[in-house]
Design a protein around this nucleic acid. Structure first.
Length: 584
RNA sequence: GUCCCGGUAGCUCAGCAGGAUAGAGCAACAGAUUCCUAAUCUGUAGGUCAGAGGUUCGAAUCCUCUUCGGGACGCCA
């Protein structure tokens, strides 16, 4: 309907332009749903916006537009209001059309082909596989997944990808940590490095390494310790110490180092994948960073930049002239020790993304990485790929609260609370919903007590209960030996004259617009707010009127309406990967 | 110092491709159940939209400055 009115106005304006009434530019046509019923159903400010170009006062122009609109069966009345708004009153029967649309389209209602099949890649989470996902990763996971799902919903071809940082120093630290725990399990006694990974899961990985390979990777204590610098506890540098341990591990283990390394990587990655699947997230691809180095992609990407003169050497390291492309300063791509930096593989990765033919590339990053954006864009531009295809979405931190207190640390291990612990505590539904409830660039206060509570204060329960309530009414109908006659309901929708019914119809009609807006702006929180509103409409209606009335026509019309509500609640919840229970 | 995000009711937040009287939820207070789930609903109260300028017929929304809070500024990832 909104679209329909916009088109009508466009026609009217074209007409006026032909007649020479309007000479200047016509602004974009916007149609708003009115807040006040006295202002009709829809309103447009087009006369206000175009007044200057037309050289007329707004009300005068509005009158001319209305005249040019002509008669229309769907619109019962138009009027000029305030400074020059045009208010539209829509035919009653026309408003109910959405109910039939919902029940015909079912779970397809709200979907569209706005994206026209364009290929979009969404990369999110991409946490280092050095340990289980924690609650800090949860928001990026829920947000990235919802954005991806929204885009798919409106017709994009979406490719979800997890970039696995399976190379680099952090992974070496992991491998060394696993090996040291393995040695300790074999009876070697030595203090664990200050900078090593100390989580319980490291012991588990070491244990399975021991089970699979027995003492194959065992060395004597002197081989391990001799000649190593001091760790922090002994007055040394913890960074230098752990690097020396890594070097020693590689020397002693030789080819077996990779086995130890992969044992840690594979187990943690399997855990992450399982965790995310449990969180309702499935990727199309897990992209290995290591593969970029191994197949020479990184080398080629850097050579290309070098050939164009964007790489230079300083202090034994290689630098990319990102400052020539808008970055604050130049960035290192190869360290003086000969290893590529993370940035080097990221250059290769982003060029690779574009090469794979995506029309749009979306990276979901933590807000603390925002300073990283200019250098990646600089690298893309310097590499001759279109940096405008990249859109980085930043997600602010989520702070967990329990009993009014911050609860970032896990009470048991003293480490960060894992995502899995969170899901166990509040459930996947609540976690998915709470994480996307706020605008992504807004800090999120995640109230664990609220997420767990089975009360109307909890928006998840509130919405799910609205869905269950409709199902419950339908069960009641059956118990009373009555059947729902959809056909008769459709024929009698005009009987829905109560204000709560009118409100529901209005809210239902907004769903597709809301979805499109949310997708275009990558704002899944819009869906949350919408679902709460629709649920509120339903609960209000429920309390004000009985649906299963004796009068058959009215009864079926009402049941039709609440079934439409149930369908839309179901669609919205499904989009957020939150379940829509039949009963609670 | 530079850059990013934020400041809206006591609290948590919507609204910000400019539009008509700034909205929810929680908390507070007052109510509603012989009736489809009270896991619900209704009502009351609550505001210098951080502050100051500017653009505009019109600003919470756009621009500038100030201020407060969070974050980022590595040969880490």
């Amino acid at each position: 309907m909104k679209q329909y009115i916009a088109e009508k106005i466009e026609q009217a304006l074209t007409l006026l332009k032909q007649d020479g009434v309007i000479t200047g530019e016509i602004s974009e046509i916007t149609i708003d749903r009115t807040r006040d019923k006295a202002h009709g159903d829809f309103a447009s400010n087009i006369a206000l916006k175009t007044a200057k170009a037309a050289g007329k006062n707004p009300r005068e122009l509005a009158q001319l537009i209305i005249e040019a609109l002509g008669e229309d069966a769907k619109i019962t009345k138009t009027e000029i209001a305030g400074p020059g708004f045009i208010n539209f009153f829509v035919n009653e029967g026309e408003k109910f059309a959405v109910i039939k649309q919902i029940l015909t389209a079912k779970d397809q209602f709200g979907k569209s082909n706005f994206g026209a099949g364009k290929k979009v890649q969404v990369e999110f989470v991409s946490a280092n596989p050095t340990g289980p996902l924690h609650v800090g990763h949860g928001r990026g996971a829920a947000y990235g997944a919802s954005v991806a799902d929204l885009l798919e919903y409106v017709g994009y071809q979406v490719h979800r990808e997890y970039y696995v940082n399976d190379a680099g120093r952090q992974m070496d630290i992991l491998a060394a940590s696993v090996w040291l725990r393995y040695l300790q399990q074999l009876g070697l006694e030595f203090p664990f490095p200050v900078n090593g990974y100390k989580g319980d899961y490291i012991h588990d990985i070491a244990k399975s390494l021991l089970e699979k390979h027995s003492d194959k990777f065992k060395v004597e204590l002197y081989q391990l310790k001799d000649g190593l610098p001091a760790d922090e506890v002994d007055g040394g540098d913890k960074e230098k110490y752990i690097d020396a341990v890594i070097t020693r591990a590689k020397q002693l283990l030789e080819d077996s180092y990779r086995t130890v390394f992969d044992e840690g990587l594979d187990q943690i990655l399997a855990d992450i994948e399982d965790d995310l699947r449990g969180f309702g997230i499935v990727y199309q691809n897990w992209f290995s960073e290591r593969s970029l180095t191994e197949d020479g992609t990184v080398e080629r990407a850097l050579t290309k930049l070098q050939d164009q003169g964007y790489i230079y050497e300083k202090d034994g390291a290689l630098w990319f002239k990102s400052s020539e492309f808008g970055d604050e300063k130049d960035r290192a791509v190869k360290r003086s020790n000969g290893e590529y930096t993370y940035f080097a593989s990221d250059i290769a990765y982003h060029v690779n993304k574009v090469d794979r033919g995506f029309d749009q590339i979306i990276d979901v990053w933590g807000a603390d990485h925002h300073g990283y954006i200019p250098r990646v864009e600089a690298a893309m531009t310097a590499s001759g790929v279109n940096a405008e295809k990249l859109k980085v979405l930043l997600v602010q931190f989520a702070i967990l609260y329990r009993g009014g207190e911050k609860a970032q640390m896990s009470t048991r291990s003293g480490e960060f609370i894992t995502l899995r612990e969170l899901r166990d505590e509040v459930g996947t539904d609540a976690a998915r919903f709470f994480y996307v409830m706020r605008k992504s660039e807004q800090h999120l206060d995640f109230d664990l007590d609220l997420a767990k509570s089975e009360s109307s204060d909890n928006p998840v329960y509130y919405i799910q209960y609205a869905h269950a309530r409709v199902c419950s009414v339908m069960r009641q109908l059956q118990e009373k030996g009555l059947t729902f006659d959809q056909q008769q309901g459709e024929e009698n929708l005009v009987l829905l004259t109560e204000e709560q019914e009118q409100k529901i119809v209005k809210t239902l009609a907004k769903y597709p617009e809301m979805i499109l807006y949310a997708a275009k702006n990558r704002e899944p929180h819009q869906v949350c707010h919408y679902l709460r509103e629709l649920s509120n409409d339903l609960h209000t209606y429920y309390n004000a009127h009985v649906f299963i009335v004796d009068e058959e026509k009215l009864r079926n019309a009402r049941l039709l309406l609440i079934n439409a509500v149930r369908q839309v609640l179901n669609n919205g919840l499904e989009l957020l990967s939150v379940s829509a229970p039949q009963e609670m």
